[in-house]
Design a protein around this nucleic acid. Structure first.
Length: 290
DNA sequence: CTACCATCCTGGTTGC
DNA sequence: TGCAACCAGGATGGTA
């Protein structure tokens, strides 16, 4: 579930409560998530101070004071939940629990266990198997139209699939892929190599804008995503096309008038279509996206 | 290279 | 109401 904006929101929540704090206790409640947890995982976390908490793509990067990094991915259903003290009881799928020196408790809860955690030497983070192949950060200074165009050149795959590819751009997932393509006016079916020049500029800008606005809204809550505080994000109310099959997209709604209401009466059908690409839902407006 | 499929796992929703 | 099928924000690995 969590894409870049959700992971960024989680990181900010974690940083607020854990940066600079020592981990007084660590508990591991099962041997593996997506992958086996490292040897002596809990013991190696205990007593460490959290130097900083940041993000690379959809990975949470927690730097520790002994030169190691706790690398985490939330997968589809992972949550990081903070509380002032120990919860009355653990919930199902609470897999890793860290207690800070001030009593703050962090629980990593992941029903589907597509998430992962690993300990990596700080100097080896960039060459880590899961990190090495990642494309540029879409909110970084270097990300722009020409860079995106270069990554898409020669790719004979639909643009939707291309921007889900973490080697092309890091952090875009299924929701923000549909949203970005809508705002760029590009059909998700268009072959990636045709997105060059002005089109690549529009797409790079759309990706950046959509992600930035989603972060400002605390991310999107679809089913189970919550911030570290337990609050929901609210960017789902700003989706233009995602999960809006049959409704009118904002541009078509504005053209239709009536105050731009997206609600349709009777049997009127909106413009937004749902298609399946690479086994995953894509939403788009065929009128506005070419 | 590319497209497509299955896979990891659980839980919520849908449809009969 | 009950139950089974289907679907889900990710990522990888195999096949053709």
């Amino acid at each position: 579930m969590p894409e870049l904006p959700e992971v960024e929101t989680v990181c900010r929540g974690l940083a607020l409560r854990l940066e600079g704090r020592r981990i007084a206790a660590a508990e591991q409640r099962r041997a593996d998530l997506r992958f086996p947890l490292p040897d002596r995982f809990a013991a190696r976390l205990r007593g460490r101070r959290v130097v900083s908490i940041g993000r690379r793509a959809k990975y949470i990067v927690m730097r520790l004071d002994d030169g190691w990094v706790l690398l985490c991915h939330l997968g589809m259903s992972g949550r990081m939940l903070l509380s002032d003290g120990p919860p009355a009881e653990y919930e199902p799928h609470d897999h890793v629990i860290l207690t800070a020196e001030d009593g703050t408790v962090l629980r990593f809860n992941d029903a589907r266990r597509f998430g992962m955690m690993d300990l990596v030497r700080e100097g080896e983070l960039e060459s880590h198997k899961l990190i090495a192949g990642l494309g540029p950060e879409p909110l970084g200074n270097a990300f722009n139209g020409p860079m995106l165009a270069a990554a898409l050149a020669g790719k004979r795959t639909p643009i939707k699939a291309a921007i889900l590819d973490q080697r092309v751009v890091a952090g875009v997932g299924n929701i923000y892929a549909s949203e970005s393509l809508y705002h760029a006016g590009l059909s998700p079916r268009r072959l990636a190599y045709t997105v060059q020049g002005e089109r690549a500029e529009r797409l790079a800008a759309a990706i950046r804008d959509v992600l930035t606005q989603a972060i400002a809204a605390g991310g999107s809550s679809l089913r189970d995503y919550v911030q570290t505080s337990g609050e929901l994000g609210y960017f789902q109310h700003s989706w233009a096309v995602y999960e809006r099959e049959g409704e009118r997209c904002p541009a078509c709604a504005a053209e239709a008038g009536n105050g731009g209401a997206k609600r349709l009466t009777g049997h009127a059908k909106g413009c937004i279509r749902r298609i399946v690409q690479s086994g995953r839902s894509t939403f788009y407006c065929p009128r506005r996206q070419r």
